[in-house]
Each structure stands twice: as structure tokens, then as C-alpha cells.
């Protein structure tokens, strides 16, 4: 499958840029941690509340940080006409989409690990039901990265891209936020079997957002 090879090429390019510029490591990850700490400040007086709210706060922090990741992913294409280069490279639009989404997903996975440790240490959460947590995280990460990439290219090339992306992405990912939070709640403190419908919902979101991206990214890239 040449499309997967092309996708790997684009993903490797994006990740190489991130490794050299260290924006993801030195700005996006710390941002996520700061959000986590801010939530703790806001709810500090009631110690018992933090572990119960941890799933929602974890995903809210991740969502806010993922906006930065999406913006960053398209900011690197903005400079020096890199987007024109991508457009003229002859790569399949779907492959470019998959590549960029995979790179964002990899950054989000790293962020989830850091935030996960943060939640355990700062919010006093005991991890349980690793399988549910893992599947939830995988499906939610794919859905977030794919949706972010779609709206990233929708807003690409506009002067107000940085402020427009959150306005477009955040409403579109509410099902992901909801599903992931409820699944985590069930896994960590509730009835674990109640998590499965939410994991399925997340799976559907992931599949749908990837389909939309595969179909729409090419035409949108041509136009931007």
C-alpha cells in the first residue's frame, strides 16, 4: 500500500520538525501540565472532589493542549510556502491527512502519558481497568487528531487561523470529550461495564473523523 508509505513519510517529516524545534516538548506538554495544576488550584478547598473530577479535568486539559498541537502542525506548513510544496509534491491528499493526523496523535499520546502521571500524582487517582483506559485513550486520540487535522486544513491560510481553529474544533469534539470522560469515570470509580458503550461511541467517532479527513483533505489542500 503506497498510501501508508506516503503517510509515514509525512508523519516522519512532522515529527522530525517537532524533535528539532522542541515546541511540543517544551511548550505544549508544559501547557497541559499547567492547565492541570490550575484546575487543582480552582478546586483546592475540597480535596475529595479532585479524584472524582479527574477524568473530566484530564480530558479538558488534553483538549486545550491538542488545539495547540493542531495549530502548530499547520503553522509549520505556513512558513516558506511549505504548504505549496506539500500540494505540489504529488502525494495523495489522503496520505498527507493520515500522516499529519498520525504525527498529532503521537504528540497527544506523549501528552496523555505525562498528564496521566500528573493526574495520579496531583489528583490522587488510582488507575484501574487498564484495558478500558487504554482503549478509550486510543480511540479518543485518533478522533481528536483526525478532527483537529480536518479543521486545521479548513482554516489553513486564513489570517485568523489561530483563533478560528479552537472555535471550529471544540464543538466538533464534544462527543469525544463526553465519551472519554464517561468511560474514564466508569473505569476509575464506577461500574466498569458501563464504559463499553462509551468506548464504542469513541470508536465510531474515530472511524467517522478519519473517513471525513481521507475524503476532504485533498480537495481542501488544493484550495487553501
Amino acid at each position: 500500500m503506497s498510501i501508508l508509505r506516503e503517510a509515514r513519510l509525512v508523519a516522519a517529516k512532522d515529527l522530525r520538525i517537532e524533535r528539532r524545534s522542541r515546541v511540543a516538548l517544551q511548550q505544549i506538554v508544559p501547557f497541559g501540565v499547567i492547565v492541570l495544576v490550575l484546575f487543582a488550584f480552582a478546586i483546592d478547598p475540597d480535596r475529595g472532589l479532585l479524584p472524582r473530577l479527574a477524568p473530566g479535568l484530564f480530558w479538558a486539559a488534553l483538549l486545550l493542549a491538542s488545539i495547540l498541537a493542531v495549530n502548530r502542525s499547520f503553522a509549520v506548513e505556513e512558513a516558506n510556502g511549505a504548504r505549496d510544496g506539500l500540494r505540489l509534491s504529488g502525494l495523495d491528499g489522503a496520505a498527507i491527512f493520515l500522516g499529519k493526523a498520525a504525527a498529532i496523535a503521537a504528540e497527544l499520546a506523549l501528552l496523555e502519558l505525562v498528564l496521566g502521571v500528573g493526574v495520579i500524582v496531583l489528583y490522587d487517582v488510582t488507575p484501574r481497568n487498564a484495558l478500558v483506559l487504554f482503549l478509550t485513550a486510543v480511540a479518543a486520540t485518533i478522533a481528536l487528531a483526525a478532527t483537529g487535522t480536518v479543521y486545521g486544513i479548513v482554516a489553513a491560510g486564513l489570517r485568523v487561523r489561530e483563533t478560528l481553529v479552537p472555535l471550529l474544533v471544540l464543538p466538533a469534539v464534544t462527543p469525544v470529550m463526553l465519551g472519554a470522560t464517561r468511560a474514564f469515570e466508569s473505569a476509575l470509580g464506577g461500574v466498569p461495564s458501563e464504559a463499553w458503550p462509551w468506548v464504542q461511541l469513541l470508536g465510531a467517532c474515530a472511524v467517522l473523523s478519519v473517513i471525513v479527513g481521507v475524503l476532504a483533505f485533498g480537495p481542501l489542500l488544493e484550495e487553501s
Binding site: 458503550p197 462509551w198 464504542q200 461511541l201 465510531a204 472511524v207 467517522l208
Partner: peptide, 13 residues
């Protein structure tokens, strides 16, 4: 997915 939503997802939300 739509068919699955109609059948399976009913208990999810």
C-alpha cells in the same frame, strides 16, 4: 455506523 447507532448505541447515552 448509522445502522449500528440505531441498534447498539441506544443504551450508551
Amino acid at each position: 455506523i448509522v445502522a449500528w447507532m440505531f441498534t447498539e448505541l441506544r443504551g450508551a447515552v
